[in-house]
């Protein structure tokens, strides 16, 4: 799981972009801790043809799932 907690914009979406470019994963899970990152990653994922969902975990962080 890609952990982008504590990173300010645009680092979270940049980390996802790097991962997508390098490995073209069918699914990718990202752990984020603010909604701005969730929204930015969602817009980026959608633009790359991914279906994006997120849920809040017990720690109050967000698990974002990108899938083809």
């Amino acid at each position: 799981m890609l952990d982008v907690r504590g990173l300010n914009c645009p680092m979270p979406v940049l980390a996802v972009q790097r991962e997508v470019k390098a490995n073209k994963p069918e699914t990718l899970e990202v752990l984020a801790d603010h909604m701005t990152a969730v929204q930015n990653i969602t817009r980026f994922g959608n633009s790359q043809g991914y279906h994006v969902e997120y849920r809040e975990n017990d720690d109050g962080d967000f698990v974002i799932t990108l899938s083809k």
Binding site: C9, P10, V13, N40, F44, S47
Partner: peptide, 17 residues
Amino acid sequence: SRLCMAGGIRDAVMFKD
């Protein structure tokens, strides 16, 4: 809305967003 003057241009340049 997360409006940001710098973020707008940065995202356009980096992510075409």
